[in-house]
Design a binder for these strands. Structure first.
Lengths: 238, 238
DNA sequence: GCGGCTTTGTGAAATCGTGCACAAGAGTTC
DNA sequence: GAACTCTTGTGCACGATTTCACAAAGCCGC
């Protein structure tokens, strides 16, 4: 059998949680903690312990009953499953405000996603250097992608330019896109897209804010408002 | 009956899609389009038409059979439901790379979320001006929040400072938090939190990348790879 | 090595979300 | 105003996800 055969498909919801577990486990590991229980991990990840166990069971039976999971080993397994056993260079399209911030942000470099290139249409931006990366003209995109064997593209353009950016990325051979433009992209079904939209996140929050306001009309005395102690819970992602 | 009574609860999945519909509808409206069908909206939003209808039906029966939905009216209704009939000032904690980018990004100002204040622990950052907003010391947080009647806080600090930032925001009276730090926050259940984590998004993409690579081993001839035309589909959020 | 304690791994039930399919309503044409 | 066309609103079945509950398994102390 090949090293790690395409084992049973992992549910999408689980895939979205694995990076969170991973991050926590890496922290634990750095703190010198060697073993963790599903209960402990659940606490830190803000989820139910049964969910942690089920999630981890998709990777295989890596726990020890009565004991828990060995942190290092779990880190290794999750990394492998997520394909993080090597670096994934990315190319950023758009060197504006957002693109520059992304390039400088620690979330890319230092987490296994080096910025292998940046491009922009604006001739004024071309040849400027952002976080150690020289901005190149949009037409160099294909060359950057094929030359660097890049499979992930990041779109940090205004909404109007996003579809064109996507088309060019795909034509160049990119197969995964992280889209920061507030715009739904049209792509072939073979391409994976994830969208991150600030305004959407905020609007989801305002929906809940508004509900809270409606539910408990403004009759002041902050009685049951923000009781900081007491029933803390991890990640009320409401 | 009060103006808009806490009508039936809207499913979380629907709430997450409403902002997307809203954005599309606003664009349509600006293009002078007055009416849209569930089919058309679904196409643009990258979802199934039945889903659009079901989602919209939670708001009420605002469509006209045989015709579709009146764009303006739908915009109005979604805005109202999301609580977007007024502005929501936000305060940003952390004036580093990310905080600065967020402040300057169009996604806040111009979308109904003016940056009412920014704070940072670093004395070197205090009193600098970012995107027209003066950075103030962390201790001014409570004053900014209460003074500006702010209910949304944005955390743009490193992971290590995020929990403290959250605690301070909550103590000051904020009830919704948008967290950009790669760290799960512990908050009371009355507080809404949404987390945006770059690394998590990228890692979800690498999982799928790795699967693609495993499924179709590297035997080159890019035969069925990226057929750009053909079966395009909106938002393959795989 | 046996009993007790702990924690995993997982069937099975409950819940949530999606998509089909179609009746019902609204406009339009003759 | 009857027949036709179009598109909404929704009951229903299905699939995905979450949660419960518990048997199986490992470790410890005696």
């Amino acid at each position: 059998m090949p090293p790690h055969r395409t084992r049973r498909r992992i549910p999408e919801a689980t895939v979205a949680r694995l990076p969170v577990y991973l991050q926590i486990l890496i922290e634990q590991s750095e703190s010198g903690i060697e073993s963790v229980s599903s209960e402990g991990l659940a606490e830190l990840a803000g989820v139910n312990a049964a969910k942690v166990r089920k999630d981890l069971s998709y990777l295989g039976s890596y726990g020890t009953r009565g004991v828990g999971y060995e942190v290092e080993y779990l880190v290794f397994q999750i990394r492998r499953e997520l394909g993080l056993d090597h670096e994934w260079p990315v190319v950023i399209v758009g060197a504006g405000n957002l693109g520059q911030a992304l390039a400088g942000y620690g979330g890319f470099n230092g987490r296994g996603f080096p910025v292998a290139g940046m491009v922009d249409v604006d001739p004024d931006k071309v040849d400027t250097v952002v976080a150690g990366v020289r901005v190149r003209p949009l037409d160099d995109l294909a060359e950057i992608v094929t030359g660097g064997d890049i499979s992930i593209g990041v779109i940090a353009t205004p909404a109007g330019a996003a579809q064109d950016a996507a088309d060019r990325l795909i034509a160049a051979g990119v197969t995964s896109i992280l889209n920061f433009a507030p715009m739904v992209l049209s792509v072939p079904s073979t391409i994976s897209v994830r969208k991150v939209d600030l305004a959407v996140e905020l609007q989801i929050l305002t929906y809940h804010e508004q509900r809270k306001a409606n539910a408990a009309p403004r009759n002041a005395d902050g009685a049951q408002l923000h009781q900081l102690s007491g029933d803390r819970q991890r990640g009320a992602t409401a």
